[in-house]
Amino acid sequence: MDTDARKLLLEKMLYARRFEERCFEAYMEREIGGFLHLYVGQEACVFGVMAAARAGEDAVITGYRDHVHGLAVGMDSKLMMAELFGKESGCCHGRGGSMHLFDLQKQFYGGYAIVGAPFALAIGLAKAIQLQKRDQIAICILGDAACNQGTFHESLNMAALWQLPVLFVCENNLYGIGTRIDRSTAVTELIERAKGCGVTGAQADGQDIEAVFEASKVAVEHVRSGQGPYFLELKTYRFRGHSMSDSNVYRDKSEEEQWAGRDPIQILKNRMLESQEITEEEYKSLDKEILDTIENEVVAFARQAPSPDVEDLEKYVLCDTDGDSEQGVNTNG
């Protein structure tokens, strides 16, 4: 990876980190309501994958920890923050919220709050891609705990059976809410379970973005060249709790400290400092620039954006509001 590519990924990961940290503050200040699941610590996963894929063109679907996936496909962070603030200017006009970000223009098919459900939707996206001969692949990014749902086995079976163009990315952060993987799962190497369904794949270090990128290139090429589905397991760790209401009593302090030493941003930054591709001053100035942008542009936009009009409460429930089926003109991307 050349210096420009590394710099870009460092900047993206740092932006995502500061975005999430600012969400935390906004939540504490009650500007963001509901649930909030932060991605801090896992940044190398989605940015590494999307660097190897076509961000904004390949179809991406994920779970409820979805802010950074939105950033990684190129969504406008102002519209995302406005959505988190519950505003009409938000990417879903305030109807979705933190767990349900969507952007059809960027082929981002959403965040879903039912664990494992997107596996099935993802094979549907892949089926449509196959049927309509679209020049894209489907990328389904979920966590380790989702692999204990029936949809994992059902969907991987169908993906393999019909050789669907779908890349399953498993962000294995070792915990399903508060239950560690070895307390919930008999076969903890999840790649083995995928293979059992007939889906080939690989494992990679999810804290090292260059390792993720290299593994993702192979994975994406496999799917794009028509060789069927692929399962990429990334070993990672979330530095914060499952959600904001998490007491975080279920993890050893020593384990947390060990993983804190494997911060994906620090790993890339240190590598670049060592090779003199960046200086500490440059990094600090980049960080300040990002913090300023998030505060002065992103949060400011979300704060001043209007709330949805209560008159529009029932808007979007149905499309054909008069039930005239002849009107059914599909505008889906």
Partner: peptide, 27 residues
């Protein structure tokens, strides 16, 4: 067989497959 599809007995996931395909304009 690409358009008239015998599925495995996996109701939740083949239903989800249909829904996901519908997102892209499949009916």
């Amino acid at each position: 067989a690409e358009r008239v599809i015998d599925t495995p007995i996996s109701e939740n996931s083949f239903t989800g497959l249909g829904i996901g395909a519908a997102f892209m304009g499949v009916r």
